[in-house]
Amino acid sequence: MKKSPMLTTLLVVLTISALASVVLCYRYLAAARELRQLQVQAAMVNQNRTLIGALATETMEYSKKNPAIDPILEAAGIKPKLGAAPKANGK
């Protein structure tokens, strides 16, 4: 069978194109994976902040019933210490 030069050329081009597809696919998947990991990390930080905020709010509510928890809230800076000078409000 005679080998057609055109057929050979087309096959070479197709092979190169297929290899390029593999490389580009790998690059895209790697970038997308890294991006997703960063987004998850950012979301977790924000979620934890929200969660701790809600916990602090509930603990503040609880402190109205049981002031024994006040030292913990004061140590965390959630509740101002009793007797502490109020912040200047510019007046």
Binding site: A18, A20, S21, R27, Y28
Partner: peptide
């Protein structure tokens, strides 16, 4: 080749 080239362009852009 045309299909693969189109896919390559899409993947490159993405």
């Amino acid at each position: 080749i045309v299909l693969s080239g189109t896919l390559n362009l899409y993947l490159l852009r993405q």
